[in-house]
């Protein structure tokens, strides 16, 4: 069967599937709210990360936990464009392990402090319960929930509940945007729309040799609506926008430049 002839069959199968599970329904352009990232990533996602869905993030190595939560923060900052709230849920153990979300840093990173609510709970199941409640609430633009280790509490059933709750939370503005941050990547099945593995990437130093803009090495492992992929993107916290990263070390900086010491920037 050639490609064109297969198309009606494919469409029919998609419709049958949509009847069984509404989350597979073909999207209507302009109706769905999307949080865009950068052009090449959006192309794969069909315009951006969908609201009313669950997205999962995990660091590719323990050292990249901060980068993972940073990517989630950046997405949340982009999502809460209007005066809506962001809820960050984590267990006491997660805060002890990787540090708690730090207000001034989040503020500089682009997430306005007055929009942030932090919920600390005792157990991972409580994280899931609170996330489900918050996803249904239309006053909350984005819910970030953290699960320590591989987050075995969030199995297929639990993530399915979260995905459905996120679907219910959809409104005319951005809401029901669930970001589940696992402290460790897992092979467990999940009902999330997308699954990402995040790592920090070496930044391109500024002209003085200081730290450049923060860079994320994104690996999209699961994508319900398209292929997976891997990109390196940059976050501009002033503009609150992602940018495609210019490759590092195309031309390495000259070795002996006597005009300044490498560490001169203070403050």
């Amino acid at each position: 069967m050639d490609h064109a002839a297969a198309q009606p069959t494919l469409n029919q199968l998609r419709q049958t599937l949509a009847g069984i599970d509404p989350s597979h329904a073909p999207r209507l352009a302009g109706v769905e709210r999307l949080v865009d990232i950068a052009a090449p990533v959006d192309a794969v996602l069909g315009g951006g990360l969908a609201c009313g869905a669950l997205h999962e993030f995990a660091p590719s190595a323990p050292v990249h936990l901060a980068a993972t939560s940073g990517f989630a923060t950046a997405l949340a900052a982009r999502a809460s464009g209007d005066r809506k709230q962001i809820l960050w849920i984590l267990t006491d153990y997660a805060a002890g392990e990787g540090g708690g979300p730090y207000g001034p840093g989040l503020d500089l990173f682009g997430m306005a402090l007055e929009r942030l609510l932090i919920l600390r709970v005792a157990k991972p199941v409580d994280v899931l319960w609170a996330m489900e409640e918050a996803l249904r609430c239309r006053a909350v633009a984005c819910v970030i929930a953290e699960l320590t280790s591989d987050g075995s509490a969030a199995d297929l059933t639990a993530t399915r509940r979260l995905a459905l709750a996120a679907r219910e939370g959809v409104s005319a503005q951005i809401s029901g945007f669930g970001l589940l941050v696992r402290h460790k990547a897992t092979v467990m099945p999940s009902a999330a729309s997308t699954r990402w593995e995040i790592a920090a990437a070496p930044s391109r130093p500024d002209v003085y040799g200081g730290l450049g803009r923060v860079r994320f090495d994104l690996s999209l492992h699961k994508n319900r609506r398209g292929p997976s992929g891997r990109w390196i993107i940059e976050w501009d916290h002033h503009e609150r926008a992602f940018q495609q990263a210019v490759p590092v070390a195309v031309a390495s900086p000259a070795f002996n430049r006597p005009d300044r010491a490498p560490w001169v920037r203070a403050g």
Binding site: L65, A66, S69, G70, T73, A95, G96, G98, G99, G100, P101, Y102, G103, P104, G105, L106, D107, L108, F109, L113, E114, S203, D206, G210, L211, G212, R213, V214, H237, R265, G267
Partner: peptide, 21 residues
């Protein structure tokens, strides 16, 4: 409720995202 302005002359943020306990 406003953060004190932080002089920032770098491309990175000057305060971390996560602070250890």
């Amino acid at each position: 409720a406003a953060l004190p302005p932080v002089a920032q002359d770098t491309l990175s943020t000057v305060r971390p995202l996560r602070l250890l306990v």
